[in-house]
Design a protein around this nucleic acid. Sequence first.
DNA 1: CTACAACTGTTGTATATACAAATGTAGGTA
DNA 2: TACCTACATTTGTATATACAACAGTTGTAG
Lengths: 153, 153
Amino acid sequence: MRIEDILKLSSDIPLSKSVIVNLLYTYGLINGELNKVLKPYDVSIQQFNVLRILRGRGDKPASLSTVQDRMINKMSNTTRLVDKLITKQLVKKETNKTNKRKIDISITAGGLNFLKEIDVMIDSKEVEMVNSLTHEEATELIRLLGKLRLIAN
Amino acid sequence: MRIEDILKLSSDIPLSKSVIVNLLYTYGLINGELNKVLKPYDVSIQQFNVLRILRGRGDKPASLSTVQDRMINKMSNTTRLVDKLITKQLVKKETNKTNKRKIDISITAGGLNFLKEIDVMIDSKEVEMVNSLTHEEATELIRLLGKLRLIAN
DNA sequence: CTACAACTGTTGTATATACAAATGTAGGTA
DNA sequence: TACCTACATTTGTATATACAACAGTTGTAG
């Protein structure tokens, strides 16, 4: 269904606005679906994202700024986000030995187990959501989003 | 640049995950750009969106649920959002004459002037952001996002 | 070796998002 | 009429986002 009809916009909005509105609206739906998957586990998408980043580092701990760099949505408060994960004992932190400004953040064994469980759910939800696209369409969508990012920076 | 490189993900993530991550990340950039445009005017994207919806109704006031239906990002707190706009005197509300459960929300003259000023800035930002795509690519992107929405519901 | 600027993270404040519970109103039915 | 259910909005609580101000640490230029 056209976004113009969903949101009851006038039918002759500029193409550029249509692209933007389509993107924002579709994001909302996808984000909502991912949230629904995570809800039962009591983690937000951002918390889940941080856990995956930390797992990806293996034994090497990450500083706060490293985590932030790799987050899908750059948020201004990785401090508080990490603190929530620490409360849940999924993550631990200590000040870096050689640079006291930095902190070493790493995932706990509990965090790894937790992730292993959720990962499957998220992966299958992602497959399900993208299923309406053919392989070629998915590849093309990725290309077009990449092109769109060129000027958005 | 590939999202896998930007976020330093492993290079062999499933296509479905790549689509989702591309979408989420690109959203973040676009959203950030729009925010930057609105910042000097001290309105959020959501507040701006509500103003546009109300203007689109002409003289016909909208109920809270009508506004919510037409918002790009369905948020759970249109009440508080509208209240902020009322504080700024850009919007006014009164209880509906024939159904006391409903409220009639409408944009003020001040709100209209305010919108007129900002609209130009947003429109040109949108054009600028989509400029990296050809007309055909933009159209295709819209089509693909529409297809993606099919299962996301 | 001191002073300063840059770096890294924390804290504060305001708004937005998500969801559930509460409040008040309307309309239908026994 | 009394009651019940659905409806429309409000309120409460927790988390996320955005951004600015603050604080401690480090490296380096003079």
